[in-house]
Nucleic acid binder design. Structure first.
Lengths: 331, 331
DNA sequence: TTTCTGTTTGCTACCGGGTGCAAACGGGTG
DNA sequence: CACCCGTTTGCACCCGGTAGCAAACAGAAA
């Protein structure tokens, strides 16, 4: 049933050799107008189109890029995936979406991507532990890797990220200017170096503004429920007088979860009793029901850069891009 | 640099022929314990693993499934993608995510997927116009296609969907029971046959309950902004006495956008002035800020079924599964 | 007519593995 | 020791293209 026409068959039909058929499908190849016409006619009749698999094998390039994702709870992934696939497709590349989870970890995924001969791997919001990687890399031959929207912990693996230091400086300056003085910071995965780095910057900039103490909240993952739970446990254990006046959350999902909890369970007002700041500028942050102050990552530019590196137009190196503070009613 | 070891090289290192090497990597192949051990040792030393590209070419099976997506505005796509990739990976399959947009339409995408020799194509929430397809299909040889979360308009292409008729019956019964009598229906893409069908069912069941008139609102796409705009234009043009008492929106995103607009721009209460119903049970519908009554699709089952068909365990045929009405405070 | 040069075409070798058959092997039996 | 049979191994050929060289075929210049 699913037998496809091959170049050889088209060649026979057109009365030429299979190499001439291939030339007809190779832009810029040396071929006479006349034979090209004949070939294309025969090809159309037989419904022939070149087999990219065979081509990939011969050229040693699949034009496929593996995209590793491990956190589907953050709806912000979706616009990133949209832009990423669009940009890759514009380069003639295609994304192989790989779900990293407990059944299929980074090592499996990388091995698999490697066996599939992908041209590159994008670690989108995930990262290898570097020890894990060094085990694998000794046998030279993993495809080139790039980290998107997260710091690279691995020597020689470039990352394209939003400048967290700058972002946190802008946020802290904004909050300080608005008069907040008792800040808190909620992380989603306390073990993550990225998370620690952000909290560090946050604390640092407050210190520069004369505020030494930062309340620390931690959710155990990046979900609305976890954000709600973290803020609940904090508010239950903290007397009203000791509470933070502004809570910075590591991403919007935590922030939205926290806002719900603050308002409906504790009956507190935002921003009068507690202000809230998120990170990502997820679409719903702008809704009047939340109106969350947040920070927008320069998604288009980030993806343009990472795809440029993969396509070989840009030097592969870590790039840090500036985002935008989006001030709304939650602060 | 990126030279990988081949079966031949491993064979030389292990002192056997390349076919013996291949047998060592083929489960169930006939090979002596002793030589298998030798081969695996040599393979480990050389960091060899089989080239799936070459294998795909030889076996005529890539174990890749193309997933076509054209609407990234609906955050509900994300959990679907998560479950889908997970289930596919559990079958040893992998998802190639293809973004259908104005630069890369269905026909391009199908042609591309076909050239890549994918084992199947999943139309996730999108659909071909059947004329378009018949043009392509005459040359037999497109990969098997399946439609997910949307009706198939194409003869012979099975779909896995949530039972819309049943869903709308449950919803209408619930609304009628709650005492609503002036229903409205908001579609996201009035031209879509799926949308028309749903509205039809909606009207039909109301008629069975003695309500003949259904207000009709239409957004021009499935986004919160479009939902807000549609409800704004409706409320502006409709005197309070003539307004609907309940508005059913084709999906949650429209509904959430509509809720924002109803409350903050018109100062109306939900559900007292206007009740709202959505569809999908997107995570945020449960948040106290919205608490939207909606209908949850049986995501896990749908995906289990479609992957089962692709893997060949299930007969490929259109399957309709029952979802769950989730009643919250918006009705 | 011969020579030269540029275009067009065909061919060999190859990418890295898979298939099915035939030969080699090895141990038990008569 | 010959024979038989089941296991293990090697081989020719195939999957559908690509690369680069060499032959064939122009048409123009000598």
């Amino acid at each position: 049933m699913r037998k496809r026409a091959t170049a050889k068959e088209v060649a026979d039909a057109a009365g030429v050799s299979k190499w001439t058929v291939i030339r007809a499908f190779t832009p810029g190849a040396s071929i006479a107008e006349e034979s090209k016409r004949k070939v294309l006619e025969a090809a159309a009749a037989l419904n022939y189109s070149p087999n990219l698999l065979a081509r990939s094998l011969a050229t040693n390039s699949t034009r496929q890029v593996a995209v590793f994702v491990d956190d589907f709870a953050n709806p912000q992934k979706l616009p990133f995936l949209e832009t990423l696939t669009e940009r890759l497709q514009a380069e003639g590349l295609v994304a192989v979406l790989i779900n990293i989870n407990t059944h299929f970890d980074h090592v499996h995924a990388l091995l698999h991507a490697d066996q599939r001969q992908v041209d590159a791997v994008i670690l989108f919001g995930t990262a290898f532990r570097s020890e894990t990687l060094s085990d694998l890399q000794l046998g030279r031959g993993t495809p080139p890797m790039f980290v998107l929207a997260r710091d690279s912990q691995i020597e020689g693996v470039p990352a394209v990220v939003c400048d967290a230091e700058l972002a946190l400086r802008e946020i802290v300056d904004h909050l300080h200017e608005r008069g907040y003085r008792r800040p808190g910071f909620m992380t989603g995965a306390p073990a993550l170096s990225t998370a620690l780095r952000r909290r560090h910057h946050f604390a640092d900039f407050w210190k520069q503004n004369g505020v030494d103490e930062i309340a620390s909240l931690s959710a155990d993952k990046y979900s609305a429920g976890a954000g709600a739970e973290a803020v609940r446990s904090y508010l239950e254990q903290t007397a009203p007088a000791d509470r933070v006046d502004v809570l910075m959350c590591e991403n919007d999902i935590l922030a939205l979860g926290a806002m719900d909890e603050i308002r409906s369970r504790f009956g507190l007002r935002i921003p009068e009793d507690i202000a809230v700041v998120g990170f990502d500028n997820y679409e719903f942050c702008g809704s009047p029901a939340y109106s969350l102050t947040t920070y927008e990552q320069p998604r288009q530019e980030m993806i343009q850069v990472i795809v440029g590196m993969i396509a070989g137009r840009l030097e592969p190196e870590t790039v840090t891009l500036q985002g935008t503070l989006v001030v709304r009613n939650s602060t």
